[in-house]
Amino acid sequence: MTEYNTVLAPVLSAFWDQPNSWTLETYLKNGGYEGLKKAFAQKPEDLIQTIKDSGLRGRGGAGFPTGMKWGFLPPADGGPRYLVVNADESEPGTCKDIPLMMAAPQFLVEGVIITSYAIGSNHAFIYLRGEVVHVYRRLLRAVEEAYAAGYLGKNIQGTGFDLDVTVHAGAGAYICGEETALLDSLEGRRGQPRLKPPFPATAGLYARPTVVNNVESVASVPQIINRGADWFTSMGTERSSGNGLFSLSGHVTRPGQYEAPL
């Protein structure tokens, strides 16, 4: 084994090299949706606490604690609340979310279901860059497979929980990588950042409580729920636990995507 392989931690990228890695069949063969089964056996507030205990931070760049962001949502008032996944990856030299959605999109779909259940959302949106048509098609197919298998739609797995997922292709504006500009774009308006407050947690999509998370953040949730917070905190550092996907590009010997502890 070469030296650089000894420091890697393949979790989200564990089976990217398998044939048809993007299909639901391959995902289930590799332990897919085991986290969802455990999630449905718990109370939503317990799931939020597990994510807090795991120390998972936002993988979109800001590094804000994910569980804390979920906990900012106000108490349920009978109206809708939303989960929005920010897949508008547009930073130069960065390409971690797009390969993840291309190679193993079911990680994201399962993460969306668990996150939506935890925060009490019945409609989730995945906002993707319109230029990456091949990824858009693959993500649509992944969502279709999840619906067909009973992981999305009405009364998921007999739990009484309903969830619809909309995959939305943006028009490719760089500013839509900022969460409030993304929300404006998703509502059909010109993508421009909103003044804060109010924050999305209280008045986000359609002025309703909304959680906006990065692709990798949401995709990390199923394995945390399945393996436990202690497993996740066994990797990384005290303040930044877990593993992450890193893009190496430019004049390097081995360019590509690497998954390693933080």
Results as ranks from 00 to 15, higher is better:
P255F: 06
E110Q: 03
V212S: 05
V221C: 10
Q157A: 14
D77R: 07
S121D: 05
K38N: 13
L24M: 09
R59D: 12
Y136G: 12
P193N: 10
L56A: 10
G244K: 11
F64P: 01
Y117V: 03
A87G: 14
P75I: 07
S247A: 14
D53H: 04
N30D: 04
Q192T: 12
G60Y: 00
R129V: 01
A173H: 14
E89A: 03
E179F: 03
P99G: 04
P92S: 11
L12M: 03
F246K: 00
T180M: 07
R227Y: 09
Y206V: 14
S54F: 08
K52V: 08
Y117I: 00
R189A: 13
G188T: 12
A14Q: 13
L12N: 05
D17F: 12
R81A: 12
Q157N: 09
T180H: 09
T166A: 05
M1E: 14
P198K: 02
A39R: 03
G228A: 06
L152Q: 10
V211A: 15
G153I: 12
P99Q: 05
A207V: 10
Q223F: 11
V132L: 13
P99S: 07
L28H: 06
I175A: 09
N155R: 06
P222T: 03
Q257G: 13
S13A: 11
E238Y: 05
D184V: 14
L47E: 01
L195N: 10
E145V: 06
F40H: 06
T66V: 11
M102V: 12
E110Y: 11
I175F: 06
A14V: 07
Y206K: 12
Q49C: 12
V133H: 09
G120C: 04
G204F: 08
T23S: 15
P10Q: 11
G79S: 15
I119K: 02
R194Y: 08
R59C: 10
T253S: 15
L245W: 03
N30I: 05
T180Y: 12
N213K: 00
G150M: 05
F161I: 04
G244I: 11
V135P: 07
P209A: 04
V252R: 00
N226F: 14
E216R: 03
V212K: 02
A41W: 04
G242C: 07
G31E: 13
L205E: 13
D162T: 15
R190S: 14
G228H: 02
R227K: 14
L262E: 09
L56I: 07
G31Y: 06
D53W: 02
M1G: 15
T180I: 08
T180C: 07
G188W: 12
I113V: 15
E216A: 07
N155T: 00
Q42A: 15
V212L: 04
Y147S: 12
V109F: 04
P44M: 01
D17S: 15
G63L: 00
I175Y: 02
A149W: 06
